[in-house]
Amino acid sequence: MSASAVTSMVHVVFWLVPGLERRHQMVSVKRQMVVNDTAFDVDVGLDDTLLRVIREKIGLTGTKEACGRGECGACTVLVDGVARLSCMTLCALVTGKVTTIEGVARERPDICAAFADHGGFQCGFCTSGQIVSVAALLQESLPGDPAAAEHVVRDRLSGNICRCTGYGGIVASVLALAGGDR
């Protein structure tokens, strides 16, 4: 199925109309979601966040819920390549292609390896979100000057809280990936 066909199928306007299925007293609609280049048919409740659908209905548990309200970045995913917080995104409104950590790890194993080489993770619970954010960041070019590059990296990753590493290893991973010489 082509991407445009998928987009047109999922680009719909939802109304409360008779005939919509009420399940567990929740209004839900049948949707097709494209996650990591795979199409999934899912029942999406209007209350369902993208995070909940990814984890509980599609079964990809790499995306984590740490705060559930947009504070920490652990649930970061890409929608059409743009980093978003899946815990604050109503799934029914998502029309783009979703990429989760599972997809990023497949496409950019070098980011995962860099995290392993540079102490970019410890407990790993924030790591999915960190790596997804890094994947988005690396689509852009960083300044050549290492100090300026570090400044940009730290600013861009400030939406991803890490309580273990003190960020040094994460920043080092990104600078190494970007070719920065530290």
Partner: peptide
Amino acid sequence: RPIDWQQRTSGAARYTAD
């Protein structure tokens, strides 16, 4: 590299809520 690096960086690691 940590022996569990692939799990912890790819989303494959299963925490309790997973």
